[in-house]
Design a binder for these strands. Structure first.
Lengths: 113, 113
DNA sequence: CCATTCTGTCGGACTTTTCCGACATATCCG
DNA sequence: CGGATATGTCGGAAAAGTCCGACAGAATGG
């Protein structure tokens, strides 16, 4: 009864790390880093077809990493880094542990300067 | 006759973000944060059986996030944060971009409305 | 030695993700 | 209005990931 067809409604609804797990999505974010771009413009540099890029963008939208604004008949995507800072906070917890233990992160990073 | 049966040899060989995508693996890293622990000790707090934990540990080992040292008939796992700093570097690239254009935040918020 | 414990791996079932061609919807321009 | 463009979504097939019970190899200790 409660069996909705939600399997297709959310082709992928992972958390931030799950969204960052795909190299294609990371490349999309990197491309978006230079500035807002339309969906078709994002597809140009990718090794996959448009529907796949559209779904990857939907995943990024679901976790709040990107946002889309309608502009005419185009849809302009832009970056939203807030979930990224959330992921960074998790990383900092781990690295802070390491800092407290060794007290010398530069020894590991070796180029922090 | 090189490694042809490698399909099972590497049940999952993603990059660092791929390894961090699984909540179970993140929890394993968090548990390891308190100090080195044996494999069975890691299984205790987990909601899955030992073979699954073992494969998750294999994934973490493949990307270099953990390392195992034999101690008698036990195997002691300990954390290695270097790949983590690599992931942090990627995040910093994205967040640095955002810091450079903090002034655009209000503009985007307006455009969304 | 031999039984016990610890750990990794295998066979196999199930779920999720990824990708594409095709269709549907929305917007613009003449 | 009607054709063209941009974008999302659907059906479905292929691939990957996840999990478990059962087995195999190493190390310990009596």
């Amino acid at each position: 009864m409660t069996e909705q067809t939600a399997a297709r409604d959310s082709p992928a609804a992972p958390d931030v790390f799950g969204a960052l797990a795909s190299p294609v999505r990371r490349r999309l974010l990197m491309a978006l880093r230079a500035g807002p771009r339309t969906a078709s413009s994002l597809c140009e540099g990718m090794p996959i077809a448009r529907p796949a890029v559209s779904e990857h963008l939907a995943v990024l939208r679901a976790v709040g990493l990107v946002r889309a604004v309608r502009r005419g008949r185009e849809q302009v995507y832009h970056l939203d880094p807030r979930p990224l800072t959330e992921a960074g906070a998790w990383l900092n917890v781990m690295l802070a542990f390491w800092n407290a233990r060794l007290g010398d992160l530069s020894r590991i990073e070796e180029g922090e300067r």
